[in-house]
């Protein structure tokens, strides 16, 4: 029996559950510590999982939007061409464990972009095979700002199951039917419904830095502002911020040809690169780094709210942590808002 879609699980119960999920044939993607960094990895054993980190170096978006993905294949033979369409049959059912609420929330902006009028099959096929077991944040750092973009350290958006570390055990909130199935299949791992567990008290305190509505409202009139030049001066124009972002979806389409056959690939790209918008003629509508920085902020905080009713940011702070020159996005947004 599950009451109010809430259960409790011990640390041991959790490890058993995840081990059973792997044994049951699902792929597990979970955080593993390596030196001073923690990264998501495909795991065969739950022993490697680490939950000490505040943030993994990359988000979990690569499960639904891999850094390079085959869109279809082609064969050429004596002038004739045959195509093999994208084949989702070999994709595995995947459980992502240990992502934080800001990463789970990232699948909303990603999904909005990939389903804007025309559904994107490769993304959707992967996404529908994913179950997200998210873990609430009990600690945060100075780069975190989820509470400024409609999120929070215990936010359930995007998750199928949300675990919140209580003093001893974990509170288990079942959010979706997918989550329900994953719990019901291994019900013995869980304990009776908790009583008086104070989830809020266990969550990290993440201060609000700005109001997204205010930022969006101001940005709509700031295209010509000098602020872009000032803010972007130190920006080096790499793609680190975009690639670690859980909501960045920009991509390139490339050809991996091997003689008479090959694959058409989709691979990550970034609006920060000067080549991103370069025309063959040499004309570039975004020829300077300040124009590209403007595009990054405008896209996430003005265009996406306007066109897709979603903010292109979940406040995970990865872009700021990854930036070689400390382009702190929350600080820049707070200056605007």
């Amino acid at each position: 029996m599950i009451h109010n879609n809430c259960l409790q699980i011990t640390d041991k119960g959790l490890k058993d559950w995840l081990a059973k999920i792997i044994a049951g044939g699902k792929q597990l993607y979970a955080p593993v510590r390596e030196g001073d960094k923690t990264a998501f990895k495909w795991l065969d054993s739950v022993a490697e999982i680490s939950m000490e980190h505040i943030q993994t170096t990359q988000s979990a978006k690569a499960v639904a939007f891999p850094r390079a993905e085959k869109l279809f294949s082609y064969q050429k033979e004596k002038g004739a061409v045959t195509l093999q369409d994208y084949n989702p049959d070999n994709l595995s059912e995947t459980v992502i464990f240990g992502l934080h609420p800001c990463d789970a929330a990232g699948f909303r902006p990603l999904g909005s972009i990939f389903n804007w009028d025309t559904p994107d099959k490769p993304y959707n096929e992967r996404r529908k095979r994913m179950t997200l077991i998210t873990v609430s944040c009990t600690k945060s750092d100075e780069f975190c700002f989820c509470t400024s973009v409609n999120g929070g350290p215990g936010n359930t958006e995007g998750s199928d199951i949300l675990l919140t570390p209580l003093k001893k055990d974990y509170l288990v909130e079942i959010i979706t039917e997918k989550g329900q199935k994953l719990v019901e299949a291994y019900q013995s791992c869980f304990d009776t419904p908790p009583e008086n567990s104070d989830k809020e008290a266990c969550l990290a305190k993440v201060p609000v830095r700005f109001s997204p509505e205010e930022v969006s409202r101001k940005l709509s009139g700031m295209f010509e502002s000098k602020v872009w030049e000032t803010q972007s001066e130190r920006c080096l124009g790499c793609g680190a911020c975009a690639f670690v972002c859980p909501a960045c979806a920009c991509f390139d389409i490339q050809e991996n040809s091997k003689g008479n056959s090959g694959d058409r690939l989709r691979c990550w790209d970034s609006c920060g690169f000067s080549l991103f918008t370069l025309h063959t003629s040499g004309h570039n509508p975004r020829s300077t780094q300040s124009q590209r920085w403007r595009q990054r902020l405008m896209h996430k905080f003005s265009y996406m709210p306007d066109r897709l009713s979603v903010i292109g940011c979940t406040g995970c702070g990865r872009c700021s942590r990854a930036c070689p020159v400390d382009m702190n996005i929350a600080e820049h947004l707070a200056d605007i808002g």
């Binding site: 804007w116 390139d252 896209h299």
Partner: peptide
């Protein structure tokens, strides 16, 4: 208008002029 494009369907992120 023409701009650099890859996907043609509003996802790859490069052809926008403002919003």
């Amino acid at each position: 208008l023409e701009n650099r494009m890859k996907c043609g369907v509003g996802k790859c992120g490069r052809c926008n002029v403002g919003k």
